[in-house]
């Protein structure tokens, strides 16, 4: 029962990846694409923790902690570049 619900949740997260990819391809400006990158990173944190449940090892949660810290730095560097104050 619970595993079925987790499988459906994983499929929904995968579907949202496709939709965000469409926004990345359409996006008129660079900032739209950076927002798409941000949403992709945050939702892939959720995907990795779901994977940690399916493979049943806690070490994968550490990978998502690294993601959460580092993606933030990447977005800030890109925004600083766009603002011309890097």
């Amino acid at each position: 029962m619970a595993n079925t619900l987790f499988t459906i949740a994983m499929l929904i997260v995968g579907l949202s990846f496709l939709l965000v990819t469409v926004r990345f391809l359409l996006g008129p400006s660079v900032v739209d694409r950076v927002v798409a990158l941000d949403v992709l990173t945050i939702s892939s944190i959720g995907l990795i923790v779901l994977l940690a449940h399916f493979l049943d090892r806690v070490i994968y949660v550490d990978v998502s902690i690294v993601y959460a810290i580092l993606s933030f730095i990447g977005v800030i560097v890109i925004a600083k570049y766009l603002e011309r104050s890097l």
Partner: peptide, 17 residues
Amino acid sequence: ITEASIGSVITVSIFFY
């Protein structure tokens, strides 16, 4: 972990720099 930190953050940051 290595791929996420180097490929998706440090490379992008250095490119933008």
